[in-house]
């Protein structure tokens, strides 16, 4: 078996070793942002009596909530924290001596569970697209949106890998990764649709790739983006992946020279 497939299989077994924990994580990731959004929309539209917010109705907001929950499940995990911790504790040594690409190996092992979740999310999304969502939504759009969300997963890991390389210099990159995750929560669209940002401030989310994780896929799945726009955003995603790949090679190439493999 190819080592990448074997790493996927191994990673999947590792993440599902405790099934209840695995399911709780999925439910937690779905319920918390959905609940926050629902409470907010209810307060604005039902309690306060608004009919539209940033051009979206109550139903449209709820559709966004439903779809964003699906893509939020696919958003990157915590492999970047794992990388930083391995640098700090010297556990990285275990991987450096293996004849595989370290970053690739950690990513593949970590993404295994997300692939299963994305398949389940896609199935749910397809059902939603033909039943609950507006007529602009379709199974084909849902498949495309999931592809974009998966590219977002790659980008998320890559950013984390670049930031975790700071642990070579600072010994710990936990704080930096936490700040990145907080920025992702706001700028990915997992808590709020990004079109709620005032037009004058939209450059903030547009200048990061975080919107490709949840907001972008949701826009395409809900029919808010044209096919042409979707293709353009795919190009943007691949460009980010390339730039970040170069950055990983650079930061890790420098960092590994400072690695001291602590923990005797």
């Amino acid at each position: 078996m190819n080592w990448r497939l074997a790493a996927l299989k191994n990673g999947f077994k590792d993440y599902t070793a405790y099934r209840v924990e695995f399911l709780m994580e999925i439910l937690g990731n779905a319920i918390v942002p959905a609940a926050i959004q629902w409470v907010l929309w209810y307060a604005i539209f039902k309690t306060d009596g608004a009919t539209e917010l940033a051009g979206m109705t109550y139903v449209q907001m709820l559709h966004y909530t439903l779809v964003s929950v699906l893509f939020n499940q696919v958003r990157g995990g915590d492999q970047d924290f794992e990388l930083a911790e391995m640098i700090r504790t010297g556990q990285l040594s275990n991987y450096l001596i293996r004849p595989v690409g370290l970053i690739q190996f950690i990513y593949i092992r970590g993404v295994a569970s997300k692939l299963l979740i994305s398949a389940l999310s896609l199935a749910i999304g397809i059902v939603l697209s033909v039943s609950v969502l507006s007529s602009e939504a379709s199974p084909l759009r849902m498949i495309g949106a999931m592809l974009l969300a998966l590219l977002g997963n790659v980008i998320h890991f890559q950013i984390g890998a670049v930031l975790s390389a700071m642990a070579f210099r600072w010994e710990d990159a936990y704080g930096l990764l936490m700040v990145k995750n907080m920025a992702v929560s706001i700028l990915s669209g997992e808590l709020l649709p990004l079109n709620l940002f005032p037009e004058s401030m939209s450059w903030i989310w547009k200048s990061t790739p975080f919107y490709l994780y949840v907001f972008g896929p949701a826009q395409y799945a809900l029919g808010e983006w044209t096919h042409l726009e979707f293709v353009r955003q795919l190009g943007v995603a691949f460009l980010w992946i390339f730039v970040l790949w170069v950055l990983i090679r650079f930061t890790w190439g420098l960092g590994i020279k400072k690695y001291v493999s602590l923990g005797g």
Binding site: M1, A6, A7, N10, A17
Partner: peptide
């Protein structure tokens, strides 16, 4: 994971 699973991965690596 059990050792066998780790060995399977090393087998592929």
């Amino acid at each position: 994971l059990p050792a066998n699973d780790a060995f399977d991965l090393l087998h592929a690596i």
